[in-house]
């Protein structure tokens, strides 16, 4: 059979249409409203550990390879020995940590007696925290308790660590707090 260029285009067009339809596994006539391509097909895959509780489930993060590299999907890592691909509701909601219109992108400051929160730069915020810690510590540091025993502590500052801190971060954090003389050092990892 001699195929002209026009004929070839017609045939290949028909084949492409046939392929497109056969992929649906369905009658030719109706039109599907949504594409059947995985939203993660062209995404970059990175493994991570769920930051919430102490179980430490593994997850796969799908990020866009083009443009802004935002998170497309996060689901359990089937190859991870702890969770074998599963995640609880908190883990399943991981993508909401980064892709969230309510997410804070910079420190927020509420002045004493003010009702409104205002954005503040990291430099400003860290300087303010350091200034207040120093002031309170200097004013309340006790070297000896009522019995004359050496204690070197301040009981006017407390620390509540984040559950999203890992083991090593927790160690550094508590080392800093103890160096300052804090005794109320707390961590929220027992959920």
């Amino acid at each position: 059979m001699k195929i002209t260029r026009r004929g070839f285009i017609q045939i290949s067009g028909a084949t492409a249409a046939g392929l497109a339809v056969s992929g649906l596994g369905f009658d030719l006539s109706p039109v599907r409203s949504h594409a059947q391509m995985l939203k993660t097909k062209y995404a970059k895959e990175t493994t991570t550990i769920c930051p919430y509780c102490a179980v430490g489930c593994g997850a796969i993060v799908h990020t866009s390879k083009k443009g802004d590299g935002r998170v497309i999907n996060i689901e359990g890592d089937p190859g991870h020995v702890i969770n074998r691909g599963t995640l609880c509701s908190k883990g399943a909601a991981l993508s909401g940590l980064s892709e969230n219109e309510n997410r804070l992108l910079q420190p927020m400051y509420r002045a004493p007696y003010a009702k409104e929160w205002t954005p503040m730069s990291w430099n400003q915020a860290l300087a303010k925290i350091a200034e207040r810690v120093k002031k309170t510590r200097d004013a309340t540091f006790t070297k000896k308790n009522g019995k004359g025993q050496v204690v070197n502590r301040t009981t006017d500052i407390a620390s509540v660590g984040s559950a999203a801190l890992d083991n090593e971060e927790c160690w550094i954090y508590q080392a800093l707090m103890r160096a300052l003389g804090l005794v109320y050092i707390e961590h929220q990892a027992r959920i």
Binding site: I74, E75, T86, L87, C88, S89, K90, A92, A93, G96
Partner: peptide, 10 residues
């Protein structure tokens, strides 16, 4: 745990 419910939404 509602993991299914959240994974579906996600």
């Amino acid at each position: 745990c509602r993991g299914c419910q959240v994974a579906c939404k996600q």
